[in-house]
Each structure stands twice: as C-alpha cells, then as structure tokens.
C-alpha cells in the first residue's frame, strides 16, 4: 500500500507537506473502506439476526421437517409449512435461466465487442443498458400478458408435440402407477404457459442484460497484443475469440454469479408467470413457486404468528442458500483464476 505512494511522491518530487496530506488521505481512505467493510458485515449479521429471531418460533415447531416437506398450508389451525417445493422452484428456474442466459449473453457480448461495426455496437449496447434498467414488475406484466400466452400456444405446444411420446429412460412413477419416462416427463401435463419453463425464461430475459454488459466490459479488456499474437500465429477469428473468452473467464464467471444472484432473489417477474403452486414436478410445464416468490406473495397477509414465523424461516433459508451459493462460486472462481 505505502510503496506506490512513496514512489509517486519521489517521482513528482513533492513537498513534504503534500506528502503529509497524502498520508492523511491514504489513512482516511483506508479507514473509510475498512468502515464500509465492517458496516456491510454488520448489516448482514443484523439481517441474519432479525430473520433468525423471526423464524425462531417456526424453527422450534417445525424443525428440520421444514426442509423435507413440501406442503404449504397456512390456514389457521391446519398450519403445515415445508419449504422444499419452493427451494426446488428456485433451483429449477435459476438453473434454466443460467443455462440459457450465459451462452446467449456471451454470444451477445462477443457480437458487440468483436463482430458488430461501431454504428451497430453502440445502439445495441445502449439497448442493453436500457433493458437492465427496466423494473422487474414490468417484466412480470409483460411475461404474464405477452410471453406466457405465446409460450403456451406456440413454443410449449411445439415442444409438447415433439417430446410427449419420446420415452427413453424410466425415471419414476406418477401417482396411479404410470411410469414416468425421460424426456416425455418434461412436458407432462401439456402446455400451460404458467410454469417452471416460463419462470426460467423470464429470468433468462432479466439476467441477460446484466451478464452481457459485464461480459462485454471484460471482453473489452482483452489486450490488443494478445489479439495480434493469436492472429499472428494463424488463429482464425473464432480461435482468437476463444482465446479472449478464456482470458476473460474469471470476469465472465463473475458476471454469471451476479446473474444467478439476481435470479435467486427475483420476485415479481417470476410470480407473474410461474403458476404459484407448492408442487414439485419434473415437468417443465408444471406450476411451481420460488422462495422469493412465496415471500412476496404471502408475507404481507401472513396473519397469524406461526405463519409469519414460517415466512421468516423461508427468508432465512433463502439468505443462507444465497450465501452458500456465493461461497461455492467463490471457491470455484479461485480454481479457475490464473495463479
């Protein structure tokens, strides 16, 4: 930390007083950033404490069964709370979103940085930033009134016709002993437009801009010398691009993690299209629910103590799983980062 300061003050031959101020500034900056870190940590701890406190009653009453059951019945007196279906919904929709958004985003970013002529790249970039700024409730309404009907009558219909009779691998049984086969099970129940697939797709659309924007930024950091070096060895455009992508992989991975965080925490848009049921199904056409979704749906009207506490338990689960996935991402990141 101090070394560059010294060097620069020597280089500019600065007056001792300047050096003194620079020292104070240094210390101030360090102090402020340390303070920021401490505060962030404190806030996180505080959130955790508040959620834990709120969920305490539910933890006592429901315990581990919360994670192994999927019935959600908040009717006073019936009171059954299991988060499994919601956790499944979060996992499935996030997975679909990343599966589609990451390659698409990389494609978009490559197009903007390495393919499109400047007169096209600039407006596309601008559009991208615009998309990232649209509030999620607008995505949700668009999803419910435009995407979902289209999905149901076109894409899902086509997918259903294509897959419903393809039975390669038996993977289980439906209630009533009919065998469930892959991949026909993915379209079981027929097109509905309000399902895991719709939830995953709306998330894809929502995280696409942010992943693309970051990927674009890191791709622009790819050094000209390496580009020249690769071409000079006879690399094709595609091979050079691959080199650039490998060079930028850490940044791209980070972009994907950010996208994932947004997908896990997204509420309104998903709620508008996912069908909001507490069921677990291997069918992409089945209705489901995410943890963040159930929260935005029911929190405000959670009208008796155990119900409210169970909601807090959901929030706590969401927080912990978000922290864990981020941690896992960090570990992975350290693995792929160049030493």
């Amino acid at each position: 930390m101090s070394e560059p300061t010294n060097r620069s003050s020597i280089a500019s031959g600065s007056h001792p007083r300047h050096r003194f101020f620079r020292g104070v500034l240094d210390r101030l900056t360090i102090g402020l950033s340390m303070g920021g870190v401490v505060m962030m940590f404190g806030i996180l701890l505080l959130i955790f404490a508040v959620l834990l406190n709120g969920a305490w009653m539910a933890i006592g009453h429901i315990g581990w069964k919360f994670f192994t059951t999927s019935t959600w019945n908040p009717v006073p007196g019936m009171d059954k709370y299991g988060v499994l279906a919601f956790a499944y919904g979060t996992a499935v929709t996030t997975f679909i979103a990343l599966l589609l958004a990451v390659p698409l985003s990389i494609g978009c970013a490559v197009f903007i940085t390495r393919l499109a002529p400047p007169w096209l790249a600039a407006p596309v970039s601008f559009l991208l930033e615009l998309l990232a700024a649209i509030p999620s409730v607008v995505y949700g309404l668009w999803g419910a009134f435009v995407m979902s009907p289209w999905l149901q009558t076109h894409f899902e219909m086509w997918m259903w016709k294509a897959l419903r009779n393809i039975k390669w691998i038996p993977v289980g049984h439906y209630p009533g002993h009919r065998t469930e086969y892959f991949p026909a099970n993915l379209v079981h129940g027929g097109p509905s437009g309000s399902d895991f697939l719709a939830g995953g797709l709306i998330l894809t659309i929502m995280i696409l801009p942010i992943i693309t924007a970051i990927t674009r930024d890191v791709l622009q950091q790819f050094p000209e010398e390496l580009e020249q070096g690769a071409y000079g060895l006879g690399a094709t455009w595609w091979q050079t691009t691959r080199l650039a992508l490998t060079y930028c992989r850490v940044g791209i991975f980070g972009a994907a993690v950010l996208g994932m965080a947004r997908a896990i925490g997204e509420t309104m848009a998903v709620v508008m299209v996912i069908g909001n049921t507490d069921r677990i199904s291997s069918s992409l056409f089945a209705g489901g629910q995410t943890m963040a979704g159930v929260f935005v749906n029911e929190f405000l009207e959670a009208d008796h103590p155990i119900y409210l506490s169970a909601m807090m338990y959901v929030a706590l689960t969401l927080l912990v799983s978000a922290l864990l996935t981020n941690l896992a991402a960090r570990v992975l990141l350290n693995r792929i980062a160049p030493s």
Binding site: E225, L226, Q228, G229, G232, L233, G234, L243, Y247
Partner: peptide, 27 residues
C-alpha cells in the same frame, strides 16, 4: 491462416498468453 502459420511473427513487446509455458508453445 496458413500463410501466417508459415510466416511467424514476434512482436516488440513480449506477448505470451496467460497460460502455462507449455500451453503457450502448444497453442
């Protein structure tokens, strides 16, 4: 691409790829 393969180029500033020594030459 074939032409550039037969006509190697070395630049003013060393520009190894951020890969291993082996992978640089293998590239």
């Amino acid at each position: 691409m074939e032409l550039r393969k037969r006509t190697g180029m070395v630049f003013q500033k060393p520009n190894p790829f951020p890969k291993s020594i082996h992978e640089n030459v293998a590239y």
